[in-house]
Amino acid sequence: MNRAKQIYLAIIILCLIIIGFSTYYSLGGFDPVEVYVMEGEKERTVIGKEYIEGIRKSKLQSRVEEAKTVIDSGQLKGKLTVVYFKNDAIGADSIHYFVGASVDEIKDVLRLPAGYSYKEFTTDKVFKVFITQHWLVGPDPQEMDEIIEIKAIEEGEVLQPLSFDLYYSDGSWSTERWAR
């Protein structure tokens, strides 16, 4: 009887391991994270709202959902975008970010939604990581930032103190760092 319990326990553990690896695989956990370097004049205009506040994931998520609602309603046309600014003056327990939509041309926007403004950015070189993994198994923002910074150092570039997260309709997203 004791031997039968050991066999059943081993089978259960083996099944859990197989299920775990299968789930991790299906969520994209084994997909490599690769940095793409895109050269040439690049401009981006983002219409959104700017925030400097304490780091709280729920607050950031509600700001992103608010911007997504504005985009989905048609008041803004573009990709959902979050711009994170590296700002040492605000302290380690706060975050400075701009949430809204990337638009092709500001002149194409007839009217800004209430409380929204726009920011324009330019560069000659973009370091970009596409994230196709589910957020449960994908790399965390600090890990992606480190990967991009290593690639920029290899290319001999200095990065601007900001990053872009762009969210696509298929559920994937990308992170970009721009060279100075």
Rank of each mutant, 00 (worst) to 15 (best):
I106S: 10
Q133V: 00
V70Q: 02
V70I: 15
F21E: 10
I71Y: 08
V103P: 00
D108F: 03
I12F: 15
K57L: 13
A114Y: 08
L112P: 03
G48Q: 11
K68G: 12
F121H: 03
L27G: 04
H96W: 08
K128N: 08
Q133S: 14
I106T: 05
P113S: 13
E43W: 01
A101I: 09
I11T: 05
K119M: 12
G29V: 05
L16Q: 07
S73Q: 12
L60S: 05
A101W: 05
F98W: 02
D31K: 12
K119F: 03
K77W: 10
L110E: 12
Y84Q: 09
A4W: 13
C15F: 15
R44E: 11
G54V: 06
K128F: 08
V99T: 14
F98E: 02
I55Q: 06
V64K: 07
H134D: 14
T123R: 03
D93G: 02
G20Y: 15
S58I: 04
E66K: 09
I106E: 08
K107Y: 06
K128S: 08
T132K: 04
C15N: 12
Q75T: 10
K77Y: 09
A101N: 04
F121I: 05
A101D: 06
F127S: 00
V35K: 03
I11W: 01
G78C: 13
P113H: 05
Y25S: 09
I13Y: 07
C15M: 15
M38C: 07
V33I: 14
D31P: 00
H134I: 01
Y25R: 10
G29S: 08
L9P: 01
F130L: 14
K125I: 11
P32Y: 08
E66L: 06
I11N: 01
K128Q: 10
K59W: 07
F21G: 01
G40E: 11
H134L: 02
T23Q: 11
S22R: 05
K86N: 04
Q133W: 00
K59C: 00
K79E: 14
G28R: 01
K119R: 14
S58A: 11
E34H: 09
C15R: 05
F127A: 02
Y8G: 07
F85E: 12
V83C: 14
S22D: 03
A10Q: 06
L16V: 15
I17L: 15
S102W: 09
L110I: 08
T123C: 14
S58N: 09
F21L: 15
I7E: 04
K79F: 15
S26F: 15
